[in-house]
């Protein structure tokens, strides 16, 4: 923690900044759920004590700077290719704990094939899938998970499902496959859900440690900037709108 504050005697730490996070400031917008999720991944790495053997695969999108936020080795994947890059790393050195961290455009639009086939192979990797229903980094375009009627810069009149189709439920799709060991959909719009999401992310990494195969944690998240809502209201929007299309819960658990 770069803050050098004298902690008065008698106080013990309850929550401190995850060790596997670097000193770099997050580049996410104020209130962006990416920041919470990035922190949860770091907490899981700390919890399992795997920082020195973890390799992350960063996407192209709002989390493109992920490698700057962690004290782990990282690979920067081309847009959509993280699951293929992760496959290459894992196959080359199965001792490494490999995770990808991808947005909805990265994983469910351009990277659909790489995601589906990594899942179908039961690739022993951990995938963190941040579904905030928009392309944030590039200025708020429609994503495969954009809700019907939802305004984005490429659906100025609201998403017309007849022209662009329906929100894509990747977790349900992947849960049909035999390959994956764990597919779950979580959220981080309040503390209770943050705690549940943390448990799910730890489980997804634990599965990899135990060689159980492909684990994916989808997190229905908010992009306050492109929702044009203050962070607290964006969180409410997740509950009132997004969860209608993306129900939370485990979709596949293989023990």
């Amino acid at each position: 923690m770069s803050v050098n504050v004298q902690i008065p005697a008698g106080y013990v730490p309850v929550y401190t900044r995850p060790r596997s996070l670097s000193e770099a400031r997050f580049t996410y917008c104020p209130g962006c759920h990416h920041g919470i999720i990035t922190r949860l991944v770091a907490e899981a790495i700390d919890e399992l004590g795997i920082q020195e053997r973890t390799v992350g695969v960063a996407p192209v999108g709002c989390a493109v700077f992920l490698y700057e936020f962690f004290r782990c080795d990282f690979a920067q994947a081309a847009h959509g290719r993280a699951c293929a890059v992760a496959t290459g790393i894992k196959r080359a050195n199965p001792e490494l704990i490999v995770f990808t961290y991808q947005g909805d455009g990265d994983l469910a639009a351009i990277g659909t094939a790489e995601t589906v086939h990594a899942a179908n192979r039961g690739e022993n990797i951990t995938v963190i899938f941040v579904n905030n229903q928009v392309y944030g980094m590039t200025g708020g375009e429609m994503a495969p998970t954009t809700l019907p009627g939802m305004r984005t810069v490429t659906t100025p009149e609201g998403r017309d499902v007849r022209a662009t189709g329906y929100p894509l439920r990747m977790s349900e799709m992947l849960a049909q496959l035999d390959g994956p060991a764990y597919i779950t959909r979580q959220a981080v719009f309040d503390v209770r859900h943050v705690q549940m999401a943390q448990k799910a992310i730890i489980k997804a990494f634990q599965n990899q440690l135990e060689g159980k195969g492909f684990s994916l944690v989808e997190i229905v998240a908010a992009c306050p900037t492109n929702l044009h809502l203050p962070p607290a209201e964006a969180n409410r929007w997740v509950v009132e709108q997004a969860l209608k299309y993306f129900p939370l819960g485990d979709l596949k658990v293989r023990d």
Binding site: V85, G88, A113, E114
Partner: peptide, 19 residues
């Protein structure tokens, strides 16, 4: 792999891992 695109990106990963 499922495509040549995936294959070259798997090469990217394996090479990054030093193999």
């Amino acid at each position: 792999a499922e495509s040549e695109v995936a294959a070259i990106n798997m090469v990217y990963g394996a090479s990054a891992a030093g193999v």
